[in-house]
Amino acid sequence: MALLEIKDLSIQFSTDEGVLHAVDNLNLSVDQGKTLCIVGESGCGKSVTARAIMGLLPIPPAKITSGSVVLDTKDLLGLSEKEMRALRGNDIAMIFQDPMTSLNPVLTCGYQIQESLHIHDKITKKEAKEKALALMKQVGIPEAEKRFSEYPHQFSGGMRQRVMIAMALSCKPKLLIADEPTTALDVSIQAQILELLGTLKKSSDMAMIFITHDLGVVAEIADEIIVLYAGTVAERGTTKDIFNHAAHPYTLGLLESVPHISKEQEHLTVIPGTLPDPTDYQPGCRFYERCTFHSDLCKKDPVEEEITPGHRVACFHYRLKDQQY
């Protein structure tokens, strides 16, 4: 059975311009020990989904109009704030994109790691400190004893992200949500953090939802991938399905519009146009206007079709993929 199962999740925001459809009828599940990557461009609803799982959406203006988020047979959307607090940091933990703004600047990093242990595990301060130090060593912070009493501004970006990871891991969560954890970091530091997350994954059976816009990072870390476009799923499958047998025109376009370092490319393929206005979606496929294959058929809402077991595509024309995109 899946560890986390999201069914028919729809999230709206009420804005001055009208109702914004952030996520529409999203289904997904994550198994224990697996990494699910949610890929998409800005505004596709990937971060909103993560926040909905954590119960961190500002309600209002956000509104969950339908669906369920079930973790281990418990529906998270029906929980009270108190029950959710007990779960957050304990069963599910989250790391954010910008480690500086998600750490408290006036508390030492060591204190912030030990705080969650103290709250959830009901252990003495001394034990909590020992555990916090062990965590800092585990995530590769050198001179942990000395750095325990330093403040976030004394840490570099990569080290701060390690502190965030140590905090997230402190209560051995079943599910870790990482929302663009390496986007703000330099490539050489990003490689360190990805390596760390990879080894942590191997040494425990924690599930991970990894949110990113960078297809390169996805290729390195994912077991399964969901490609989101304008709040709906365009394509889903294993890493191999997506990178070797991509079928949705959007996925194909994304893969080809990225410059490769080891490949000779004359010209970058471009997805024409821009994202549709999320307050004014037309019925039918949301990729319609930017898609080279579109036909009248696409004015109906596409449903996800299974091409091979586990590989699903929401497109009427996916078979055209062998033609030149």
Binding site: S156, G158, M159, D186, V187, S188, I189, Q190, A191, Q192, L194, E195, D214, L215, G216, V217, V218, A219, E220, T239, K240, F243, N244, L255, V258, H260, I261, S262
Partner: peptide, 25 residues
Amino acid sequence: KALISVIPEPSLHRSQKKTILQGDI
């Protein structure tokens, strides 16, 4: 060399071995 080896590539066929630089700038 190290910088190029760690650039994540959107493909599953990596030939190069990664050299992960330790420490900060």
